[in-house]
């Protein structure tokens, strides 16, 4: 964190009544259906603050959908999600009635969450620095010069200050993803979500992204990572959640989840991911 400029955002140090005790994210009874298919079937999950939680599971298990619900890119059809105790999107009354919160409220709760996408989603008409500074200027109303200083600090944090003026098309996939991480970090989020951040990268480029994530985990940020990199999950993750067919099958420390005796579904899943570092666990 040493290279980060010590800037304050409106909420970063504001007194949250339950910030000290509340988990970073609390998911209660979340369900999601797309048409007739039930993708999430009542998930309860607690994401501890200041730690790295990895969501693993086979394709189609619903882990990305769960992450997108926590980012409010998808709206859960059932249940509630709270961010440090504050309800996200919907408030639930004692009788279980859900009411939609105001757009301002949704935006303010959401501004505390950062997201890194599988496809990077860098804006192609802006430079790396432009991507990082965009929200600082248009949303946080920072002065251009101040925003650029802050943006450069974030780029150097991911080791790309020398690529600041390059356009996304001039960067490798790994570099693009690191810029995307810098873009999310620039807004000083309390929680950083990663949606399969290395899944669309060539194998030789995954390392640079995973290293940046490892550094972030070491700095005490709250990370929630959907990943197929089992080796990364087992070594960096402090909490592991294993999803299967829209249900949370296992949740605990890597030792609890990966240790013997192993759940048969997890054992079967690990078999298919030997090349992603699962071999070391077997």
């Amino acid at each position: 964190m040493s290279s980060t400029a010590p800037t304050r955002t409106p909420h970063a140090n504001s007194p949250e009544p339950h910030a000290a005790t509340a988990p970073a994210v609390a998911v209660k009874g979340v369900g999601k259906t797309f048409g007739a298919t039930e993708v999430l079937k009542g998930i309860d999950l607690t994401v501890p603050a200041g730690a790295t939680t990895c969501l693993i599971g086979p394709s189609g298990s619903g882990k990305s959908t769960l992450l997108r619900c926590i980012a409010f890119l998808e709206e859960a059809t059932k249940g509630t999600i709270t961010i440090k105790g504050d309800p996200l999107g919907f408030a639930e009354a004692a009788n279980g009635q859900r009411t939609r919160l105001s757009p301002q409220n949704i935006r303010s709760v959401r501004s505390r969450i950062g997201m890194v996408f599988q496809q990077f989603n860098l804006w192609p008409h802006m430079t790396a620095l432009g991507n990082v500074c965009e929200a600082l200027v248009t949303v946080r109303k920072m002065k251009r010069k101040e925003a650029e200083e802050r943006g450069m600090a974030q780029l150097s944090r991911v080791g790309l200050e020398h690529r600041a003026t390059h356009y996304p098309s001039e960067l490798s996939g790994g570099q693009q993803q690191r810029v995307a991480i810098a873009r999310a970090l620039a807004l000083d989020p309390e929680i950083l979500l990663f949606d399969e951040p290395t899944a669309s990268l060539d194998p030789e480029l995954t390392g640079e992204v995973l290293n940046v994530m490892r550094d972030l985990a070491g700095s005490g940020m709250t990370l929630l990572v959907v990943t197929h990199e089992i080796g990364f999950a087992a070594t960096v993750g402090e909490s592991i959640a294993f999803l299967d067919h829209g249900r949370l099958l296992l949740n605990g420390t890597p030792r609890e989840v990966f240790g013997e005796p192993r759940h048969p579904r997890l054992a079967q899943f690990l078999e298919t991911y030997l090349d992603r570092g699962a071999a070391t666990l077997l």
Partner: peptide, 29 residues
């Protein structure tokens, strides 16, 4: 691409800012 707008959504750009800063410039190009 929809993802570019989701990324804008995540960093808090309002629908109007998304149109002005992301959608329109890319669409025109």
């Amino acid at each position: 691409p929809k993802g570019l707008l989701e990324a804008a959504d995540m960093v808090g750009l309002s629908p109007w800012q998304q149109l002005k800063r992301i959608r329109a410039p890319i669409a025109l190009r």
